Computed example of a mutant assay.
Amino acid sequence: MLALPAAASTGSDLLTTLTPGLLDLAGVVLTALIGLAAVRFQRWTGIQIEARHREALHSAIMTAARVAVARGLTRDVATEFVAAYVRASVPDALKRLSPSAETLDALVRSKLLEVAGH
């Protein structure tokens, strides 16, 4: 019977010795998990912000394209009108997405054709 309390005492001493190390390990793991969650949240919010800017850009192009077609503007004049409208109405979206001039021009011409076809 004397061996039992000695064994219990040794287990308790071992636990007491390991506790600071286990707490440090738990802290490192928790910090890593928080860091991973923060990175994923930033990616997700970045994607959401980009989607809102893309939607605003497309909406502005469509609005101006409808006006240009309703006014009967020629293709070149309509393209410039839509591009100017977009630069004035959604500058933040253009800044965030930073499409090349060729990409924006192609998008504008595509939306003009789409609106004219309806």
Rank of each mutant, 00 (worst) to 15 (best):
L2D: 15
L4P: 13
L4V: 14
A6L: 15
A7D: 15
A8G: 14
A8V: 14
S9V: 11
S9K: 13
T10A: 15
G11R: 15
S12A: 15
D13R: 15
L14D: 12
T16P: 08
T17N: 13
T17H: 14
T17S: 15
L18Q: 14
T19M: 09
L22F: 06
D24M: 14
L25R: 07
A26F: 07
V28W: 10
V29T: 01
V29W: 00
A32G: 06
L33I: 00
I34K: 06
I34P: 08
A37C: 08
A37F: 03
A37W: 00
A37E: 05
A38I: 05
A38Q: 04
V39I: 08
R40I: 07
R40E: 07
F41E: 07
F41L: 13
Q42L: 09
R43V: 11
R43A: 08
W44G: 10
G46E: 06
I47L: 10
I49F: 09
E50F: 07
E50C: 06
A51F: 00
R52A: 10
E55K: 11
A56D: 06
L57P: 03
L57M: 03
H58R: 11
H58Y: 07
A60V: 00
I61P: 05
I61W: 01
I61D: 01
M62H: 10
M62W: 04
T63F: 02
A64M: 04
R66K: 09
V67D: 00
V67P: 00
V67C: 02
A68G: 04
A68T: 04
A68F: 02
V69R: 09
V69E: 01
A70T: 01
A70C: 04
A70E: 00
R71K: 01
R71H: 02
G72Y: 07
L73Y: 01
L73Q: 02
T74F: 04
T74V: 05
D76T: 06
D76W: 02
V77K: 04
T79F: 01
T79P: 06
E80N: 05
F81K: 03
F81L: 02
V82R: 06
A84Q: 08
R87D: 03
R87Y: 01
R87L: 01
R87T: 02
S89R: 03
V90R: 07
V90Q: 03
P91T: 03
P91M: 05
P91V: 05
A93V: 03
K95P: 09
L97P: 02
P99N: 09
E102M: 12
T103W: 12
D105I: 08
D105V: 09
A106Q: 15
L107G: 12
L107N: 13
L107F: 11
V108Q: 07
V108N: 08
V108D: 02
R109E: 11
R109P: 06
K111R: 13
K111N: 13
L112H: 02
L112R: 05
L113S: 15
L113M: 14
L113F: 12
E114Y: 10
V115D: 07
V115G: 06
A116W: 04
A116D: 12
G117H: 15
H118R: 14
H118N: 12
